[in-house]
Design a protein around this nucleic acid. Structure first.
Length: 501
RNA sequence: GGCGCGGUACCCAAGUGGUAAGGGAGAGGUCUGCAAAACCUUUAUGCGCCGGUUCGAUCCCGGCCCGCGCCUCCA
């Protein structure tokens, strides 16, 4: 089944399929704008990366292989400034943030792209692109040695953002540092080195790349002149992606990407997230407050990517409950002792749920709609599991696999059934210890270290033994002790389950 | 000012020209040593307001009100 996805370039929903023949290999070639590693990632960043993960995983689920490239922008004004202030090299400055970013992706179970591309490792390719642009008259050098893109040379400018620059006023001086530009909107391709700043000595002069050039250079390097999909946050439509198009297409005279996907911004408590509003959260902030990585993942992907998502703590609590329902069911179904045979109603329900699920995702990644049939199936199966052994409507042995297969398809995209939350939170806790950020850590997070999985298993076993001996006082004592440390016990006819709250 | 998006039950949130998915929360019940889980019942004659088109509109059109985003660094 093909994926129908809104395309910013055409302004409509288009079918996204790999176009063969443009580059080697059968995969769908996608480039997603990654982070500028000057700080820890916040939940707004991660909404975008999570939604791109939903796209990637949906493509894979639909049987479309992907070649996914993401840039790491490890040189820009802010990085240079901050590194200088700290008295270290930009590499020393960015390395911990890049590592933290990749760790955060892991915590959120975001799949890594096939290729990570660091800006500082592709300076040559960027210089080459500037030279090519100069050759076709689309780039010019100013007296200070900087290079700019000549917008007047690219009439199609504005096609992505639907902006009309025809009546644009030339000559307006907007930036005092860039007084030599031919036109106010001309943007920097290469910035001449200022004293003491990080710079590279190159054939086009000593300096450093402008903001947009790295994505043009690296996307074409790894994916060819034209690739299938370019994705990023909605803020990148203009000017970043518009500028990428101008830079690349001026040289290649071919479309840079056929399909453009943009993820809408997140609001927090109804406002755009910003440090000054006091509603700014990094992933690490939330983990240390005791919210689970899986709940953050589910919350951030459950509102479809084109909708404005209002992020709230209530939403995280709700996502936590939803995940528990799914995990409890998954465990129950896996462990259940079942009589042989199959129940046609459940077989049909599983097939129906699977189809509805796939249809929803295929429809512009409608994650909200995709969740519904999964929960419908969970209820139907739970009901059947509750029925007596003699009831013909009960769940039978051959019903297990098809229902688990639907859950697997769900998890192929949503990926919340496997509980790796404690690990993610422990890593955040270790980081907080190393960097002396223990002030706001929730007690439940600190308790993670006191009760390891092994310790819990041992106590649960002891309690089961006590129950067998009908020593309910001791059994309840253990249950309370665990509960006080955020561990819940559930008895069932198929054994004892426990989970961290 | 220009461009764009949204207003659906207590909360979050899909959706369709034919009579409102799903999740969370609340209430009552079943089950259970107790609890948890699970299941059942229950919470929108209603989808911002006013007109229009239609046999019929929450969904289409027009107007209005409210909220939000982008247009500058930003995912």
């Amino acid at each position: 089944m093909p994926l129908r996805l809104f395309n910013t370039l055409t302004g409509q929903i288009d079918t996204l399929v790999p176009q063969p023949g443009l580059a080697p290999g059968p995969a769908l070639r996608m480039y997603a704008c990654g982070p500028t590693v000057y700080d820890y990632g916040h939940i707004g960043n991660f909404r975008t990366f999570l939604q791109i993960d939903v796209l990637r995983r949906t493509l894979l689920l639909l049987g479309i292989p992907v070649r996914h490239v993401m840039n790491i922008t490890d040189v820009d004004d802010k990085i240079i400034h901050n590194a200088q202030a700290a008295g270290i090299s930009i590499g020393q400055y960015t390395a911990p943030f890049e590592r933290a970013f990749l760790e955060d992706l892991d915590a959120l179970r975001v799949q890594h792209p096939e290729q990570l591309a660091r800006a500082t490792e592709h300076i040559d390719r960027m210089v080459q692109l500037v030279q090519q642009l100069a050759q076709v008259g689309a780039a010019y050098q100013t007296e200070d040695g900087s290079w700019y893109f000549r917008l007047a040379s690219f009439p199609a400018y504005g096609q992505l953002s639907k902006k009309d620059f025809a009546g644009m006023e030339d000559g307006a001086r907007v930036d005092v540092d860039e007084y030599e530009k031919d036109s106010a909107r001309d943007f920097a391709l290469w910035k001449a080195a200022k004293p003491g700043e990080t710079s590279w000595d190159t054939p086009i002069g000593r300096g450093r790349p402008g903001w947009h050039i790295e994505c043009s250079a690296m996307s074409m390097e790894y994916l060819g002149d034209t690739f299938d999909l370019h994705a990023g946050g909605e803020d990148l439509i203009f000017p970043h992606h518009e500028n990428e198009i101008a830079q690349s297409e001026s040289v290649t005279h071919k479309p840079l990407a056929r399909h453009w996907m943009h993820v809408r911004f997140l609001l927090v408590d109804g406002r755009k997230m910003s440090k000054s509003e006091g509603n700014f959260y990094t992933l690490r902030d939330l983990l240390l407050k005791g919210y689970k990585a899986s709940a953050i993942r589910l919350a951030l992907i459950s509102v479809p990517y084109r909708h404005q998502h209002n992020f709230t703590f209530d939403g995280l609590v709700e996502a936590t409950a939803a995940i528990e329902r799914l995990r409890t069911f998954h465990q129950r179904l896996t462990q259940a002792t079942l009589a042989p045979g199959s129940n046609p109603d459940l077989q049909a329900a599983a097939a129906q749920a699977h189809q509805t699920y796939i249809d929803a995702l295929s429809n512009d990644l409608n994650t909200a709609e995709a969740r519904a049939p999964i929960f419908d199936l969970v209820r139907a199966a739970n009901t059947a599991l509750d029925r007596a052994n003699t009831d013909p409507a009960r769940l039978l042995a051959d019903d297990r696999a098809p229902i688990l297969a639907v859950l697997a398809a769900f998890d192929a995209v949503f990926d919340v059934l496997t509980d790796t939350d404690a690990d993610a939170t422990r890593r955040a806790l270790a980081w907080a210890r190393e960097t002396s950020r223990l002030d706001d850590v929730a007690p439940s997070v600190l308790a993670l270290d006191a009760f390891t999985d092994q310790a819990i298993d041992a106590l649960v076993a002891e309690r089961t033994q006590a129950k067998r001996q009908r020593n309910f006082a001791r059994a309840d004592q253990i249950r309370n002790q665990l509960a006080e440390n955020g561990v819940l016990i559930e008895d069932s006819k198929d054994g004892v389950r426990w989970k961290r709250k």
